[in-house]
Write a protein that binds this DNA or RNA. Structure first.
Lengths: 202, 202
DNA sequence: AGCATGCTTCGTCCAACAACGAAGCATGCA
DNA sequence: TGCATGCTTCGTTGTTGGACGAAGCATGCT
């Protein structure tokens, strides 16, 4: 037997739950009430939704005092959501008149743990243009120059098998062009080194 | 506003519909009744399910006589399903006792339009070992040697922007290791050239 | 023409489940 | 020790939608 897709899909297939999941795509951990507000439902219903999502392994939480902070359990989940976004965004191709709130979202947003939107796409372009990652039709890869550059500013890739790829291209649902995901994408958004670090590549 | 994920997810989130979609992951086009049998439902219910799936853009069909052949509308959809398979397969990690029917499925199967299962993984290994595609931690890429080799046997990549990548790695839900997808993966399973063509790389 | 096959439409029934009010636990703060 | 805040559990209600029988409409075969 194949695994049963329908349970996970069914969980996402609810308006309130999907909104909560998308809210967590920002990468920030949010409390149950914040998520309830975002999904426009009461705290009670949010509670059972969140319980289901965590039990299914899509979310994990950490308690802090009387607050319960939820986040996506894994990058896989974010990728799945991104995948869904792309498919549905592609379906409504003739993009309906987009408001100003949209414009902001399209300019810059965070896609789980890396940068997306116009800015994310531009950054990716710049990295390729400066030869730090390859400009391949498939997935990007760090060039030698890139390895030196990023090692120099403190980036350390985890090359063990089973880990997420260092570079991954991620199709932007708003821009319909790639931006950079993977370990490097995450690190650029949130470098772990203390030393100040600036891109002067634009 | 972000696109509404929940409609597509909700469509997949039904047992019968998900089974039909997975049946179409074989890459073969199937008739409505075949899909109904596979999903263990009557023809009537299958009809409305299939109508919903096509209207949402997940399926497309072609009529041949009194038969209606359905297939996945696009490689994107297959990728989404594969994504879901991986997440749910990962969740039930301690793999429950698998029957003999499973063993067959694990040995060799088709993942939408390319080879998967043990055989798919082995093929991918061989391609890397013989230096036809790169053995990078991220996505594979054709080597020069590979470009010559595959051009020689009639493979022609479509490098236009917006097309699917030439090489893509695809995590196998049964093997938990990568196999080869993308244009090359598709072509290997189903080369368009008439000339006979054999891999002697095992 | 007649019949079989494949798919669809209609009407009805039934189960699943999202939603909320109300009440109940915790935790933190004064 | 109170009180406020955040989250959960319970019971109820209402709606959604999946399922099938029956009938209808095409298409193809003889």
């Amino acid at each position: 037997m194949q695994p049963d897709i329908s349970v996970v899909a069914g969980l996402i297939g609810d308006r309130a739950r999907s909104r909560m999941l998308l809210a967590l795509m920002s990468g920030k951990a949010l409390t149950a009430t914040e998520l309830a507000l975002d999904a426009d439902i009461t705290a009670q219903t949010a509670s059972v939704h969140l319980a289901k999502l965590t039990e299914a392994g899509l979310l994990r939480f950490s308690k802090q005092g009387r607050h319960k902070y939820f986040r996506l359990s894994h990058a896989d989940v974010a990728q799945l959501l991104e995948n869904l976004l792309n498919i549905t965004a592609g379906a409504i191709e003739p993009d309906i008149h987009t408001g100003p709130a949209d414009a902001e979202l399209r300019l810059a947003r965070v896609c789980y743990d890396h940068m997306a939107g116009e800015l994310g796409v531009a950054l990716f372009q710049a990295l390729k243009q400066h030869g730090l990652v390859t400009n391949s039709p498939d997935a990007p890869e760090m060039t030698e120059k890139g390895q030196i550059f990023f090692a120099d500013v403190g980036f350390k890739a985890d090359l063990r098998a089973g880990k997420r790829p260092v570079c991954r291209n991620c199709l932007d649902w708003s821009e319909r062009r790639d931006h950079l995901a993977g370990q490097l994408g995450q690190w650029i958004l949130n470098p772990k080194t203390k030393e100040s670090f600036r891109f002067i590549i634009f």
